[in-house]
């Protein structure tokens, strides 16, 4: 079955939801790719998303893998364009307008008003991810430690995520020694 039209629809829709960051779209990403279209399981989505946190560049590049699994390399390219195209065009058009609107009083209202909503959407996405990723005492401890360390120490977060991989392998992996 040809998945390309569905990929375009889903990812251009998700594109518009990423207010504040990619995480804001995560709840809908889960519903559409896992529950509606069955392109992958929730566990696979969590795995891909978390691995994507270690990759350089914009942190939603894991969508490429979903496109690839659903429809091959063409699917990967289509997903990239569908996901980044709409907001890129919007940023281009509104960006030019926004700078001209510096004296428009509502501009400040929009920025101030959307700031807490975007934080709320990021948190909501984070909780959706946590529902699948934090399943017991060990995973809760990893999440909590990473959170606290990042707020207190200047360290590359990718190293902490790698550290999480090591702890996970020891805690849940087959005993190799």
């Amino acid at each position: 079955m040809n998945q390309i039209p569905a990929l375009i629809r889903v990812f251009s829709y998700l594109s518009i939801l990423t207010v504040g960051g990619g995480m804001a779209a995560f709840p809908e990403l889960k519903i559409l790719t896992v529950d509606v279209h069955h392109w992958l399981t929730f566990t696979q989505l969590i795995h891909l998303y978390s691995m994507g946190q270690m990759a350089p560049g914009p942190n939603m590049m894991m969508i490429v893998s979903i496109g690839d699994w659903a429809a091959g390399t063409l699917g990967a390219v289509v997903v990239l364009i569908a996901f980044f195209g709409p907001t890129a065009v919007l940023a281009f058009l509104v960006g030019r307008l926004w700078i001209k609107l510096a004296k428009w009083p509502w501009r400040d209202s929009i920025q101030k008003g959307l700031a807490p909503v975007s934080i709320g959407l990021l948190l909501a996405g984070c909780f959706t991810l946590a529902k699948g990723a934090v399943t017991g005492a060990t995973t809760a401890a990893i999440a909590f430690l990473v959170f606290v360390i990042l707020l207190r120490v200047k360290i590359n977060p990718a190293l902490l995520v790698l550290g999480g991989a090591v702890v996970g392998a020891f805690a849940y992996g087959p005993k190799i020694f």
Partner: peptide, 13 residues
């Protein structure tokens, strides 16, 4: 097993 740890760390991040 490793990815379980990665996902938990991603939540913290």
């Amino acid at each position: 097993a490793a990815l379980k740890g990665v996902a938990a760390a991603a939540v913290g991040l």
